Amino acid sequence: MSLGVLGTKLGMTTIFDPETGNAIPVTVVQAGPCLVTQIKTKETDGYSAVQLGYSELPDRKRTLNTKEPKEVNKYLSSPEYGHLSNKGLPALRHLKEYRLDDVSSFEIGQTIGADLFEEGALVDVGGKTIGRGFAGYQKRHNFKRGNMTHGSKNHRLPGSTGAGTTPGRVYPGKRMAGRYGNTNVKIRKLTIAKIDSERNLLLIKGAIPGKTGNLVSITPALIVGQK
């Protein structure tokens, strides 16, 4: 496993290759900055990993009605706020772990940004796809429609869903209407076309999951034969 970075999808645009003049469609991603919020080792947690936090929250307090009233951030639960504040870190909206073999080079509060990558490198980008709500057979599974001629009573119906008495049920996994989208997807081996380290921007060739403002995780691409 390798360290990645959390980011926000800002949208798509086009850049041009200065050598060939070809137009390159790219997705602009705000990659970090992320803070190291926890370092896990085999001795303390049973495995080694680095936890990153992303997207600092406004400092808005609320008071917990407990025997000993205490203030926590309005947007975080008490355990989450304590996990960060005890280390002197700000309130962060997103936390994610990346498992590593060696965590000795990291420290709490360290900043990770776009400079983690290099131009031309291959990366895997994971995120949630756009949610399309409850969709029917044609939109969700690309089914054909029925005849639209006079007298036809099957236009967008699914047709038969299974056998009769035997087995007397519909098999699990049958393609039917249901929730479409809003699933975790990872697009593999995308190329970083350009990096703006000052503003922590990555220009990734091609499309990535989700709509503008979507949270994504960017990690170096896993090549066959590598761990």
Rank of each mutant, 00 (worst) to 15 (best):
A221M: 04
R169A: 06
N214E: 15
N22T: 15
I223H: 11
N73E: 00
P25Y: 01
K139Y: 14
E71V: 00
T41R: 07
V125W: 02
M176R: 05
Y47L: 02
V5N: 05
Y75G: 03
E198M: 11
T165E: 14
G225L: 04
V26H: 02
Q38H: 15
A135M: 13
V125R: 01
Y81T: 02
G151C: 05
A114M: 08
M1Y: 07
A114N: 02
V26G: 02
V185Q: 09
P158G: 06
A31K: 01
R156H: 14
R188N: 06
P25C: 04
V125K: 09
R188I: 07
E80F: 07
V224F: 13
L57H: 04
H155C: 14
C34T: 07
G162Y: 07
G159Y: 05
K205Q: 13
L222K: 14
T111D: 08
I112D: 01
L222E: 12
R62H: 00
G162R: 03
G7M: 03
T37S: 13
V125N: 05
L84D: 05
N73F: 01
F134W: 14
D59I: 14
T183G: 12
T20I: 14
G133R: 03
G173S: 10
E43V: 13
K74R: 12
A121R: 09
I223P: 03
R156V: 12
L57T: 01
L6W: 02
V29P: 00
M148C: 15
G4P: 04
L89V: 04
T183D: 11
S48Y: 01
L10G: 09
P69E: 00
T161R: 07
P58T: 06
L3N: 02
S2M: 11
R60V: 12
L116Y: 06
F16Y: 12
E19L: 12
H94C: 11
S77G: 12
A163S: 13
G113E: 11
A135Q: 14
A121F: 06
T63Q: 01
Y75C: 00
L10T: 02
G146Y: 04
G113V: 02
K144G: 15
K74F: 15
N214K: 15
N154T: 05
L84N: 02
K174V: 10
Q138G: 12
L203S: 07
A23E: 10
R199N: 13
E68S: 01
R62V: 00
G181P: 08
P209V: 09
T166C: 12
E119K: 07
S105P: 00
R199W: 05
C34W: 02
A91T: 09
R132I: 10
G178R: 08
K189E: 10
I24Y: 07
R62T: 01
G46F: 03
I192A: 06
G88V: 08
K186L: 10
I208C: 04
L201W: 08
Y75N: 11
R145I: 14
